[in-house]
């Protein structure tokens, strides 16, 4: 088991409304020279959280209320750019368990799923509601694949492939699954010479 199983999350949201937030914004390159994963939560969104002298800004991400948020809501096309897994490592180390947008880039989405961070692409009206209501308490139910908004915001379904859903809910990673396919892999290698 490499991360805590994720079934339901109920938390206030932290909203970053900008579109196209790339993984350089999430984790600037100067923090990529680490050879471990530890402590990357300190550097996540560093350019928003620290000034030129390295002092903390008054950005919500630096507040106690912000640090208690497990759900990140971001503008369209979150996580584009570099494949650095340091981005989801930083987000999970900070405390996020769910990221919601109207579009999430492929590699970031893929990396998130492998680290217990649930990427949710939600329909535009619900996304807009979330952008317009920062800090509301929202419930994510992975079992029913639903996002439940408070204050008559409604309930929305989201898509996730069955395999990723299973892995997140059980807290299993894919290494063991692949190891179990050793015979098939060996047969493939033999057949192709």
């Amino acid at each position: 088991m490499s991360f805590q199983p994720l079934k339901t999350v109920t938390s206030r949201t932290l909203v970053l409304p900008l579109t196209n937030i790339d993984t350089d914004q999430i984790m600037p390159a100067k923090f990529l020279s680490m050879t471990t994963k530890a402590g990357l939560g300190e550097h996540v969104f560093a350019n928003l959280r620290y000034d030129a002298n390295g002092n903390p800004t008054n950005h919500e991400l630096n507040s106690e209320a912000g640090k208690a948020c497990e759900i990140l809501v971001a503008g369209h096309n979150f996580g584009c750019g570099s494949s650095r897994e340091h981005a989801p490592w930083g987000l999970t180390d900070y405390g996020f368990r769910v990221v919601i947008s109207s579009e999430i880039a492929d590699i970031f989405r893929n990396n998130s799923l492998k680290n217990g961070l649930l990427p949710i692409v939600i329909e535009k009206s619900a996304h807009q509601w979330l952008l317009d209501h920062p800090g509301e308490e929202v419930t994510i139910d992975l079992d029913t694949q639903q996002v439940r908004l408070p204050k008559n915001g409604g309930t929305y379904n989201f898509e996730i492939d069955a395999f990723s859903r299973h892995c997140l809910m059980e807290g299993v990673d894919e290494m063991g699954y692949l190891q179990n396919q050793d015979d098939a892999i060996a047969a493939y290698e033999k057949a192709r010479g």
Binding site: P88, I107, K114, D173, M175
Partner: peptide, 8 residues
């Protein structure tokens, strides 16, 4: 790919 998949 990400680092988890590099491991895979």
């Amino acid at each position: 790919i990400g680092t988890t998949q590099v491991g895979h």
